[in-house]
Nucleic acid binder design. Structure first.
Length: 266
DNA sequence: TAAATCCTGTCA
DNA sequence: TGACAGGATTTA
């Protein structure tokens, strides 16, 4: 579910509730979602630790603690982070804070993961965030040239740019006017410039709208995002293209719903 | 490069 | 009942 704009919206909303708070206790309702270390050590590492600052790299969220460790969340498809005293329906972890409030990790499908690390893992630290990091157009174009897979597959590759998921990959292709099925190495320079711009614009607009909600996504305050109102193609199969009126097509591409306008995107 | 896998819920 | 759902990793 959550892609970069959703994770960023959550991070921002949680900031006032978490920064400078101390974790009083940790209750693991589903211990297997803790990736590392063992569930018991996980709790020990966190209890009585103060949250110093947050970090987001792509869809990976981290909270740096006053012992130098990093509490990590990955929400995957249905993960949520919520502040409140009421236990949500699919609560998997409860963190009690020193102001008496609770941080809940809630996740229906239980695909989400949490961990506590001595440092941000190198594989994640080396990712290039789609919005915050510096990367040049020439880096992006070079990578396109190296890949014969569909443009959409490259956009979804977190090692290319971190943070783009299925919704925004479709939206970026639409905004740039390029078919998501076009082999990346057959994207021309001018088209790649449009894609580069589309990545920045779509991400910025979606963050401003506090993310996209169909059913599952909720911000840290429990409220849905608003970007679904602005989507150009995603979840719009059979509806008229906002540019040309042609009907939006949906196909399954590697088992994932993929939407495009057959007239605007070649 | 593609398919299977981890899960549960919802909708057609 | 089966297809599909914002993801990432492992296996074939």
């Amino acid at each position: 579910m959550p892609e970069l704009p959703e994770v960023e919206s959550i991070r921002r909303k949680l900031e006032p509730s978490l920064i400078s708070r101390t974790i009083v206790s940790v209750r693991l309702l589903l211990p297997r979602i803790v990736e590392t270390p063992t569930p018991k050590k996980f709790s020990t590492m966190l209890v009585n630790r103060k949250i110093v600052r947050s970090h987001r790299i792509g869809k990976y969220l981290f909270y740096e603690l006053d012992n130098g460790k990093f509490l990590h969340f990955h929400l995957r498809m249905t993960g949520r982070l919520l502040i409140g005293n009421e236990q949500p329906k699919f609560a998997r972890i409860e963190f009690l804070l020193d102001d008496g409030k609770q941080l809940w990790f809630d996740d229906t499908r239980t695909l989400g993961r949490v961990a506590c690390y001595p440092a941000i893992p190198e594989a994640v630290a080396n990712l290039v965030d789609a919005v915050n990091d510096r990367y040049t157009f020439s880096d992006l174009f070079t990578k396109f040239k190296q890949r014969s897979v569909a443009l959409k597959d490259v956009l979804l590759d977190q090692k290319f740019l971190a943070g783009i998921g299925n919704i925004y990959a479709c939206e970026i292709c639409f905004r740039a006017g390029i078919s998501p099925y076009r082999p990346a190495n057959r994207v021309k320079k001018g088209e790649a410039e449009r894609i580069n711009q589309a990545i920045q614009d779509v991400m910025a607009e979606a963050i401003a709208a506090e993310g996209t909600t169909f059913s599952d996504f909720r911000g840290a305050d429990g409220k849905p995002g608003n970007y679904q109102l602005q989507l150009g193609v995603y979840d719009r199969a059979g509806k008229p293209c906002r540019n040309c009126g042609s009907l939006i097509e949906k196909r399954m591409h590697h088992n994932r719903g993929t939407y495009h306008c057959p007239k605007c995107q070649k």
